[in-house]
């Protein structure tokens, strides 16, 4: 039994370590900011649920070259798009995408969900709404 717990704990440590390596806690809020500030500055914002997580990898590289984003900004916005790639996000962000190109405001329900996702993934919440200007 002790061995079992040990193994389980090691497993959990592994998960958190790997997650921490893959993303750092400031990445998602930064991604939300990049999304809000820039992703609707040339065209209407695109909903994260429009594409699969993997497709976003390619599109974000494309947009990085087109809009001259830093590697860091691209990684952040990719993390944001993947974290918010939920069916509900599609409807909400898609609709919001057109309303006001600069201030893409997520509805509360979606924001709560987003906070839940970020909480689960790395223990930090996206405190500000994407695009909401302080």
């Amino acid at each position: 039994m002790r061995v079992l717990i040990f193994i389980l704990t090691m497993g959990m440590v592994g998960v958190t370590q790997a997650a921490a390596q893959a993303t750092d806690p400031t990445l998602l809020p930064e991604g939300a900011q990049v999304y809000g500030d820039f992703c609707a500055s040339c065209h209407n914002a695109r909903a994260s649920s429009e594409r699969t997580d993997l497709e976003w990898v390619a599109i974000v590289l494309h947009m990085r070259a087109r809009a001259n984003f830093t590697k860091r900004e691209a990684a952040a916005v990719l993390a944001f798009l993947q974290a918010t790639n939920l069916p509900e996000a599609g409807v909400a962000m898609g609709a919001a995408g057109g309303v006001n190109p600069v201030n893409v405001v997520l509805p509360d329900s979606l924001r709560d969900q987003l906070i839940a996702v970020t909480d689960r993934e790395e223990g930090t919440a996206v405190a500000r709404r994407p695009g909401g200007r302080r």
Partner: peptide, 22 residues
């Protein structure tokens, strides 16, 4: 099971390194 979990997170990261055609 633990090994699987251990493997999961890195797998998600490396998936981004796959070649993607779109």
């Amino acid at each position: 099971f633990s090994l699987m979990i251990l493997g999961l997170a890195p797998a998600r990261a490396t998936a981004q390194n796959r070649s993607i055609f779109l």
